[in-house]
């Protein structure tokens, strides 16, 4: 496993674009740390102090930071898609196999790298959020600080699931630009489908029940949007705003299912192909 990781690391780290994208995806999340610690004065009219709104308090901060930082996954998604596209356009995939890498090892080396990246990224999110929580919380007990950390776990699976999807599209389409385009189009298609289920054919509940099994929606449901929860904090009559934002085990299971399927399909596709 270490050998396969090293192989992928050499390939990606020596590529300037990949290196910049990976670093960027790690640096951007720190912006939320900065945002949480500064007060922005708007020309003396008022001062925007996000800390005052209570969004950096435990437990909601775990929800908010994982939700927003997850958007930065797009940087590494580009890396994932192009790491397959490049292997095809440089025909190095062929050379790798000739040199004695099996097709299984080829897929695994990339999947291990995805796992490692997701793990490091999760760690970064954990540290950032923990620092914010420590700074803003009135709680002093440690076990209360960790309330809500299930969102960090959900973040990990969300990343792995999404990158596996990108990986599969990369293998399927072989060209990075087309694969990214296809990723975007399939996202739109799924959104349209969701909207149709929700407002045209069925109602909210049935739409959610069906759509939770779709790839993008299953990832989306893993960490529900926290906006409603934030709004609910400052509204006296909360009845209309109550919704289920918790991380459910069946949501995680669906995403793990997609991950396994995407990785397996990538391998099966590669195995069947003549290079």
């Amino acid at each position: 496993m270490i050998r396969l990781l090293q192989i992928e690391f050499i390939k990606l780290w020596n590529n300037r674009t990949s290196r910049i994208l990976i670093l960027t995806s790690f640096i951007f999340p720190f912006s939320i740390l900065i945002l949480s610690s500064i007060k922005i004065p708007f020309f003396g009219f008022f001062t925007l102090d996000l800390g005052k709104t209570g969004i950096f308090n435990v437990p909601i901060v775990w929800h908010i930071s994982t939700f927003f930082i997850a958007f930065f996954k797009i940087f590494f998604a580009i890396v994932v898609v192009s790491m397959i596209g490049n292997e095809y356009s440089n025909r190095t995939i062929k050379q790798n196999l000739i040199d004695g890498l099996s097709k299984k090892e080829f897929v695994l080396s990339k999947f291990y790298f995805i796992l490692t990246y997701a793990l490091v990224s999760t760690l970064v999110v954990f540290v950032i959020t923990f620092l914010i929580a420590l700074f803003h919380s009135s709680y002093t007990e440690i076990n209360l600080l960790f309330r809500g950390t299930e969102f960090v776990l959900a973040y990990f699976f969300k990343l792995v699931g999404f990158f596996s999807l990108c990986f599969f599209l990369g293998v399927l389409i072989k060209r990075s630009a087309f694969a990214l385009g296809f990723l975007f189009i399939s996202f739109i298609v799924e959104m349209i489908l969701y909207a149709m289920f929700k407002w045209k054919w069925f109602n909210d509940q049935i739409a959610d029940q069906i759509m939770q099994f779709f790839p993008f929606t299953s990832l989306w449901f893993l960490i529900d949007q926290p906006i409603q929860r934030v709004v609910a904090m400052s509204v006296p009559n909360k009845k209309d705003l109550i919704y289920d934002y918790a991380v459910h085990w069946h949501e995680v299971l669906i995403v793990i299912g997609w991950t396994a399927l995407f990785v397996y399909l990538s391998y099966a596709l590669l195995k069947k192909r003549d290079l």
């Binding site: 192989i7 050499i10 020596n14 300037r16 440089n90 050379q95 196999l97 890498l101």
Partner: peptide
């Protein structure tokens, strides 16, 4: 294949890597 050396059609290496880096990668694979 780790005990075989083979060159097929045209040379395939990572264009953005130096000869040294490319060969290090091959060493890892083999």
């Amino acid at each position: 294949l780790k005990k075989v050396g083979a060159i097929i059609e045209r040379p395939n290496f990572y264009p953005y890597m130096s000869a040294m880096q490319n060969l290090r990668l091959v060493c890892k694979i083999k």
